[in-house]
Design a protein around this nucleic acid. Structure first.
Lengths: 322, 322
DNA sequence: CTCCATTATACTCATCTGGAGCATAATGGA
DNA sequence: TCCATTATGCTCCAGATGAGTATAATGGAG
């Protein structure tokens, strides 16, 4: 009844509202051996997914069902990423509309049974330009930068070249700009726009032009993966989500290496510890391990209590205290 | 073809994937007279919305079409909010599944023609407990706090009461905890869970128990509005989106009052200016106005260039510089 | 057994940033 | 002319952050 009130007052609505196919799709992340990995299925590079059905209690539970069926891998933390619809990028004419509701899930790779259909692959296989842990990869300055600048130079409209150059510089940190690890999606979309990734050339006949290194994925899955990486890189900075990827106990260096794997860049060791400890995110277990070589390291565990205690603001407004 | 690869490897898929009705729904925000307003339609408290159709080029353009048809109001900035599916909250049995893809849009109230079907209403009409510009509203301590604590006390399971009390304290800033203006959705959901808002009692027969002040909305629109407010309150802190709500030129105090209207709390005047100016978000027009009383104020305009120049990180990791 | 490479952990120091408040400058109206 | 009011500039202080130095435990090489 209220349903009606909500829809009536528009002109083109003449009963021809039509239904749409809805897919649930997951970016499942784990960090294995300090490599950040995404879960894929089949031989193709495909993210786990499946249609949203009547039987599903909710979007999340539907997603859980699909992923666990397809990969035999249980999911822990889940959050919604984004809802995509314009699949025209892939080049298939939309006879019927498909919508993809994407999710980010964090787990650990407990090697259970049934791992045949599941495959972890480092996300840097798909985005080799994103790993700056050993400094900017040569690939960036040797291949990406010149290719992107050629694309900028090929702009037809007045001023469009300069605008492209600026977008490129901001996204990739060229010139004296800083590298911003969060701009994963912007970088991928720039490369797509410049025709430098395989997905951009699908449906265009035989491959034309030079492609940048990095595995392609099915459909628009690489874009969805980029969205997930960007979200995670952003989120680790203001929410204690890294711990979803850690074993129950760990050393501070293990924690640091995991963060570095995700962020794709190195952090200052002493300051990292200070940050973690002053926020009281962890507590000592009392045990130590010398598996790491050198002086034995204390083992810590996540203080689950912080989840409830805090809500983590992130002020950037000069609020008044009183 | 790859489509197939993506869907084949799951067990329950036996051709019975079914289609779903997809609605696009908008939280359209403007600040009128320092009151943050949402756009509603009809007599009911309903957000503008309409079904996603084959004719729509993309989700966003579909949304634009609906909102502009329903309200004759052009939209500027748009971003996706969240995709909702579990309408069971409203109490209607799902014969068919409905999915709502919600968007946040920012505009200014240029009073054009055809405003009959449009209606701006302060979002504090719906969430009176969210306006802390004049300090915590009496409503919070006089009504909400006792009612929520009664609910916490009514918990059956062991420990559940304490857990509820903690959630309440964090969400509303009780005890010596700080008020966090971003937790709009958590607060609404707590009140919903506690049965203190009208929506929670729909389909439950005649109203039972005491309701908190604040207008209800159709369906789950109030939850969607809460999501939009939360997103906006968070976003103004790290992206220059306020300017979408400002006239072309403005004084710094006008800008400040607008931010305060959105955040629901006061900011420190001098520090606010410092923040704005050091980030070079605005530039002087060279003119002044004395409409404000007292010493005439300089007029500023937004430096649109910053959109391109920066990408705004938000580091919270102790990165190494080299 | 000693030395050394390696990792862990504790401090120090300079700088930056954000929260607060004081002081001075222009207005219009009483 | 005085005053209320708003605008705007500047100082101060405390806590957070970036960076580096110093010391503590290990295991393994010689």
């Amino acid at each position: 009844m209220q349903e009606k009130a909500a829809r009536n007052s528009n002109p083109t609505e003449a009963g021809r509202a039509h239904d749409v196919h809805v897919d649930l799709i997951a970016v499942v992340v784990a960090v294995n051996g300090y490599e950040p990995c995404a879960l894929t299925i089949g031989e193709a590079d495909t993210l786990p997914s499946g249609p949203f059905e009547l039987g599903h209690r909710s979007l999340q539970s539907g997603l859980r069902t699909w992923v666990e069926h397809q990969t035999r891998h249980p999911l822990g933390y889940i959050e919604q990423l984004y809802t995509f619809a314009d699949r025209d990028r892939i080049g298939d004419e939309p006879q019927q509309r498909v919508i993809s509701i994407s999710y980010l899930a964090l787990t650990r790779d407990e090697q259970g049974p049934g791992s045949s259909s599941r495959r972890w692959r480092s996300w840097y296989d798909y985005f080799p330009w994103e790993d700056h842990r050993a400094g900017a990869p040569p690939l960036v300055t040797d291949l990406l930068e010149p290719a992107l600048h050629r694309w900028a130079a090929s702009a037809k409209l007045e001023g469009a070249g300069a605008e492209r150059r600026q977008r490129i510089a901001v996204a990739f940190g060229f010139g004296d700009r800083p590298w911003n690890e969060e701009l994963v999606l912007q970088r991928y979309e720039l490369l797509y726009e410049a025709g430098l990734v395989e997905e951009a050339q699908r449906g265009q006949g035989p491959a034309s032009g030079q492609l940048m290194p990095g595995r392609a994925m099915a459909l628009d899955h690489r874009r969805i993966l980029a969205t997930g990486i960007a979200r995670l890189r952003s989120k680790i900075k203001y929410r204690p989500v890294v711990f979803e990827l850690m074993p129950p106990t760990f050393t501070l260096l293990q924690l640091q290496r995991t963060v570095e794997a995700l962020a794709g860049r190195l952090v200052h060791k002493q300051n990292f510890r200070r940050l973690i400890e002053q926020q009281e995110l962890v507590e000592e277990t009392g045990e130590t391990t010398s598996d790491t070589g050198g002086r034995p390291a204390k083992l810590f565990r996540f203080r689950h209590a912080v989840q409830a205690e805090r809500a983590a603001a992130g002020t950037k407004l000069p609020l008044t205290r009183s």
